[in-house]
Amino acid sequence: MSADTLIPEEPEAPTNRPPSMERVRSWLQRPYARKILILTVVIGFLLLPLAWLLLAAMNQTGAPASEIMKDIEQTVFVFTLVSIPITAFVFAVLVYSLIGWRQISGDEPPMQDSPAIRTNTIGVILWTVASSLLAMFLVVWGLVELAQITANSYGSISADEQPGQKSSEIINVTGQQWVWTFEYPEHNGLTSDILYLPLDRPVYFNVTSKDVIHNFWAVELGVKIDANPGAITQTGVTANKLGTFNVRCAELCGMHHAFMQTQIQVLEQDAFDSWVRESGGKKTS
């Protein structure tokens, strides 16, 4: 076949370039193409349960006890789903490279070379577009969720200015080696080493430390903020589930870091009020 015959003689022929669908169709007819696609789908379905398994592990000590934690779990779920296809495709190529395309062993370099594919414009463009779109999706999702979580935590104070909102509670959290102290400034400076929270009311935390950096982690509530010496950090949450939850220190703070844990008790408003009364605090509202 000489190259001359490939050149169409009609001047308008270049405008009738073959549609790329035709190329894709021919690509799909190659023996490995469909196998890799099928392998991708199979591996994808094998990975699919991960989306729920991750959440199951996260919920081992109790289902989410706040909107924030629900948002976090939703994010984890969506991110897992989104990353499965691309992971499955890469794994499929790895697997097919070992079982599908020919492989040889031995001490001498192979006599026969493989096809010299230096690049593939369609493949490269597809990958770039897909990965950029994916990254854009992750960024947008993350920014929106972050704004929402910020509104849920930092926004607690402004929320009680809204008519019909229940008033918020302020709690001063102090970390020191290796205990947590919770002070309720609105209740006559009542202090406690267990965190009592009223159900369904926004709580606003001021957090600081008396010695080194600690990290105030209310696990099932999805609250986490450093307790820094010499600085006050702020966060907040609205607990929407009754029960006992965990506070752990999530920043290495010395010898007994592992034991710097305490409990969270989420109580109904009545029970919370009576706890405040019994502990000598003053009821404000």
Binding site: N172, T174, P185, N206, T208, S209, P229, G230, A231, I232
Partner: peptide
Amino acid sequence: VESPNTDPAIFGTF
């Protein structure tokens, strides 16, 4: 020279 932050938090308190 002069710090712009004139009312910093007191260490260990609120």
